[in-house]
Computed example of a mutant assay.
Amino acid sequence: MAKLYFNFSAMNAGKSTMLLQASYNYQERGMRSLLFTAALDNRTKIGEISSRIGLKSEALVYDTKMDLFTCIEQQINQQTINAVFVDEAQFLTEEQVWQLARVADHLRIPVMTYGLRTDFQGKMFPGSAALLAIADILREVRTICWCGSKATMVARLDKAGNIVEEGDQVVIGGEESYISLCRKHWSLCKLGDPTDKNNDAVAEMMCEPVEL
C-alpha cells in the first residue's frame, strides 16, 4: 500500500537535498518521479527545486488553489508515475494535504513531502499541521544549533542580523534570512556567544555527520 510521508525539520537541514537524491534513486531504476514546489518559494528559479550543495531539478509549481489530486491524476493518464515528491510542504493547504492522501490511497502512488514544522514565531504552518495529523510516516530531518544541541526552531533575522519576533508568517525574497536554533536559545533569542569556550568544540561537531 502506498503511503503519505512527511519529512520535517528546521531550516538548512538538507531537506531539498534528500528529496532530490530520493527522486534520483527512482529515476536511476528506470522509474518516473513527479516533483512539485511552492509558487511562494521564489528564492531561486520559479519551478526549480535546488539545494545548498548545488543539486537541482525542474518541478511543477503549485499554489493554494491547485487541486493536486486532479493534477497528478492527469499526469498519470499521460505517463506512468512511480512517486510524487513535494518540496516546501509547509505551504500546502489542509485540503491539499488530503488530496495528497487520496493520491496515496486511491492512485496507489507514494507521496513524499518535505517541509518546515513551525515558523519563526514557533507556530505551526497549516500544511505541516495537517501532515503531522494524517501522514502515514513522519520523519524528522535533524540539524543542530550553534550550541551543538538539536535544532527544532526557526529564527528570522533582519538585514543587520538581529532576530525578528513580529511580522507575517511567510516572507520570502526580501532582506530577511533564517537560522535554526534549539528551543532554549530560540526562547532566549541568543544567536551565539563568541566568548563561549565551547565554540571550538561546536565547530568541530558541525563538521561531523549528525547521528540520526
Rank of each mutant, 00 (worst) to 15 (best):
Q90L: 07
L116Y: 02
G173A: 06
R32I: 09
K15E: 00
T64L: 09
A22P: 03
T37L: 00
S23P: 12
P110A: 01
V170C: 02
M1T: 15
E165S: 06
E94Y: 02
R142D: 13
N42C: 14
T118Y: 03
T64R: 13
S51D: 08
V202Q: 11
S180C: 08
L92K: 00
L138V: 12
I53C: 03
E88W: 02
Q21H: 14
V97F: 00
K45S: 15
V111I: 05
L100I: 04
W98I: 05
N25T: 12
R142Q: 15
V61G: 05
A10I: 06
S128P: 08
R108G: 06
L68V: 13
V97N: 01
C147E: 09
E94V: 10
E204R: 14
Y178L: 11
E28T: 13
A10H: 07
G148Y: 09
K3F: 04
A39C: 08
I137L: 07
E208G: 10
S128E: 14
L132C: 12
K65R: 10
P194E: 03
A13Q: 03
F6W: 10
T80E: 08
T143W: 05
R139S: 09
N7A: 10
A89P: 03
L131K: 01
N82R: 02
Y26W: 05
A151L: 11
Q78I: 06
T113I: 00
E176V: 10
C145E: 07
I49F: 02
G148M: 08
D168K: 07
L116K: 01
V154S: 09
E166F: 04
L212H: 14
I53L: 04
N82M: 04
Y62A: 00
P209E: 15
G192V: 11
D67S: 09
I53E: 01
D87P: 10
L34H: 01
T152M: 12
M18W: 06
S33I: 03
F125D: 06
S187Q: 14
C207R: 13
A201S: 08
L188N: 12
I49A: 01
H185E: 01
E166W: 03
S149K: 08
Y114G: 07
A129N: 11
S33L: 04
L138W: 09
S33Q: 05
E208C: 12
G115A: 06
W98N: 07
G161P: 12
I172M: 15
L60H: 07
T44K: 11
D119W: 06
A160F: 11
E208A: 13
E175M: 04
Y26P: 02
E176H: 08
